[in-house]
Amino acid sequence: MARRLSAVLAGVTAAALLAAGVATADAGTTTVTAKAAGSGFAHPGVLVSRGQLDFVKAKVRAGAQPWKKAYDAMMASPSASLGYTPTAYKVVQCGPYSNPDVGCGAERRDAFAAYTLALAWYLTGDERYAKRAIVIMDAWSGTITAHTNSNDALQSSWSASVWPRAAEIIKHAYRSWPNSARFATMLRKVYLPMAQADRSSWNGNWELTQIEAAVSIAVHLDDRTLYDKTVARFRKRVPAYIYLASDGALPKPPPGTSIDTRAEIVKYWYGQTTFVDGISQETCRDFTHTGYGVAAISHIAETSRIQGRDLYPEVRDRLRHAMGFLARHATGNLPSWLCGGKVDNRWVGPVTEVGFNALHNRMGVHMPATEKLTVGQRPTGNNNLMSAWETLTHAENRA
Rank of each mutant, 00 (worst) to 15 (best):
residue 5 L to D: 01
residue 6 S to E: 14
residue 9 L to Q: 08
residue 18 L to T: 11
residue 23 A to Y: 10
residue 25 A to P: 00
residue 27 A to G: 13
residue 33 T to G: 04
residue 33 T to E: 05
residue 37 A to T: 14
residue 43 H to M: 09
residue 54 D to E: 15
residue 57 K to N: 13
residue 59 K to P: 12
residue 62 A to E: 15
residue 64 A to K: 14
residue 65 Q to K: 13
residue 67 W to R: 11
residue 70 A to H: 08
residue 73 A to E: 13
residue 76 A to L: 06
residue 81 S to R: 06
residue 84 Y to T: 02
residue 88 A to T: 03
residue 90 K to T: 14
residue 90 K to Y: 05
residue 92 V to H: 04
residue 96 P to D: 14
residue 102 V to E: 07
residue 107 E to P: 00
residue 126 D to K: 08
residue 127 E to I: 10
residue 131 K to Y: 05
residue 131 K to C: 01
residue 134 I to T: 10
residue 136 I to K: 06
residue 137 M to C: 06
residue 144 I to N: 06
residue 146 A to N: 14
residue 147 H to P: 01
residue 147 H to D: 03
residue 149 N to G: 01
residue 150 S to L: 02
residue 154 L to V: 03
residue 155 Q to L: 02
residue 158 W to P: 03
residue 164 P to A: 06
residue 164 P to K: 03
residue 166 A to G: 13
residue 180 S to M: 12
residue 188 R to C: 04
residue 189 K to H: 13
residue 191 Y to F: 13
residue 191 Y to T: 01
residue 206 W to L: 04
residue 207 E to K: 11
residue 216 S to F: 02
residue 217 I to N: 03
residue 217 I to E: 02
residue 220 H to C: 04
residue 231 V to T: 11
residue 234 F to C: 03
residue 235 R to D: 11
residue 237 R to G: 00
residue 247 D to I: 02
residue 247 D to P: 02
residue 252 K to N: 15
residue 261 T to Q: 09
residue 265 I to S: 04
residue 272 Q to V: 01
residue 274 T to H: 12
residue 279 I to K: 04
residue 281 Q to K: 10
residue 282 E to R: 08
residue 284 C to T: 08
residue 290 T to E: 15
residue 306 I to S: 01
residue 308 G to I: 11
residue 311 L to A: 02
residue 318 R to I: 10
residue 323 M to P: 07
residue 327 A to C: 10
residue 349 G to Y: 12
residue 352 T to D: 02
residue 359 L to E: 09
residue 362 R to F: 00
residue 364 G to M: 09
residue 367 M to E: 04
residue 368 P to A: 07
residue 369 A to N: 13
residue 373 L to M: 11
residue 375 V to D: 11
residue 381 G to I: 01
residue 389 W to K: 00
residue 393 T to S: 04
residue 394 H to R: 13
